[in-house]
Nucleic acid binder design. Structure first.
Lengths: 257, 257
DNA sequence: CGCGCATTTGAGGACTGTCAACTTCCGTGG
DNA sequence: CCACGGAAGTTGACAGTCCTCAAATGCGCG
């Protein structure tokens, strides 16, 4: 591992509070590897020997069944992945593939399992990381099962806005077809969903999206701290004033203003 | 906790390999509580003070958003739930409600967090349990996003058959409307899905379901060890027809660039 | 016996996926 | 600098799936 990557890796949640000694023991045999775009790092069902830590680039986690394919997550630096399989020394449930040139640190699974059993601080850090991942998936399932396509897109845009802290303009971090897969729809439907959101002040220009009328967008999207991970704990003012506003809006379905 | 419940709790994965001392320390302040049917144990967003261990009855975990509701899991004895929230000392992302009379052991969250930090064996057990839960959710998302309603039902029936090891007849462990929610559809559609499966040898009599023609059902359902948790590692004979379909699929992912 | 609840069935509508054609964007090579 | 080819994105027509509403049927318990 390169010297100037160490601080970034050290700052990962899985190393929170751990001693330098433990950190060295775990990462001692790790090595950094570069991958070109569109490379499969790991196939569903493969045995997992390493914990992967994405230092640069983007990685897509996907699952397949019977010639269908779905994206479970898209990772950006710095994050680790397939921790659960490493902890259980089990095979991977999802494939991982690069969607950009990537720099990835590969940490021995054995080292992780061994060290967990010896250093409780590290064990706790792992457990906390796994808990966070678990809760991320719970949010993801709720998002998928409870919201429609347009609502998922609207919330995605609002989440993006919250994360980038830029004014009312966001830049999509992925190709639209990748974004569509992430949101659980086809590229065609993503396109139509963007059209629908025009009525809520959303203007698309390539990868740049301007959110005029954030207020209207929020009324449609209804971000929820128990799904979206940003957003106010108090449901805002817009909670009940518009139970009926909603129904009228829906009926006009295009005209809105 | 009653004396004759101890072995069952002791056998939980979260206590695998832990010393008697640690076990007593964690469960020392726990207490057993009985709940009537249809009782909300925990509401989305609530602070979580206890790890719950279901000893008898059934509990449904559900998420809500904007007057919609979805079932994430249905638990049967013996299993623990909301471990992730306990580990992070965070609020619950899903509600928990009894759908039968239940006996539940409530274990102090503080005791768990504290003991994890002191006994690495316990920490590892917790991490392994969390990993298992995480992977269960991954399977669940894949099941939800990749399969249609009829396919989900077919696989559910086959999984049930594998678990109960009874001949070709299974008994549904829940009301049909609960089952529908679990499978991510409306009761009406579950009913129709059962009708569709008549063509695959499925006969329904109240809660009893006979699976004639398991073979046909499997060809429709295509159970997959990376989703369904039972099922052969070798894709069986019925994959034979499309062995090449598989390989071409694989190549497409890996072969790009 | 009758009520209440779960389940089933039917009709209609909303949403999403598929297929095909078209436009736009961008990197390559002349 | 421009022309070209390919990929990404968009649009329209159409079909399939799923949901909603409404009504009918079946079942258990008072």
């Amino acid at each position: 591992m390169r010297a100037n990557d160490i601080p970034r890796v050290r700052a990962l949640p899985i190393f929170a509070n751990v001693s330098d000694d433990t950190f060295k023991r775990v990462t001692g045999t790790a090595y950094l590897q570069r991958f070109p775009s569109n490379t499969t790092l790991l196939m569903e069902g493969d045995v997992v020997d390493f914990l992967y830590v994405l230092l640069d680039g983007q990685v897509e986690l996907q699952g397949t069944w019977k010639d269908k394919e779905t994206t479970l997550a898209i990772l950006r630096p710095v994050s680790s992945f397939i921790l659960a399989a490493v902890v259980l020394d089990a095979d991977a449930l999802m494939s991982a593939r690069t969607i950009e040139r990537c720099e990835i640190l590969m940490i021995s699974g054995d080292a992780i399992r061994k060290t967990m059993a010896e250093d409780p601080v590290f064990g706790v850090a792992i457990a906390r990381e796994l808990s966070g991942c678990y809760r991320g998936l719970v949010r993801s399932i709720k998002n998928q099962k409870l919201r429609g396509g347009v609502e998922r897109l609207a919330n995605y845009l609002l989440t993006l806005r919250a994360k980038t802290e830029g004014g009312d303009t966001v830049r999509l971090p992925h190709e639209k077809r990748v974004l569509a897969a992430l949101l659980g729809m086809t590229p065609e439907n993503l396109s139509r969903a963007f059209s629908t959101l025009q009525g809520y002040g959303v203007e698309v220009n390539g990868a740049d999206v301007r959110l005029g009328k954030v207020r209207d967008l929020e009324r449609l999207a209804r971000p929820d701290p128990l799904i979206d991970n940003h957003a106010p704990r108090a449901p805002d003012i817009l909670a009940e004033a518009d139970a009926e506003l909603w129904s009228t809006e829906r009926q006009r379905s295009g005209g809105g203003n």
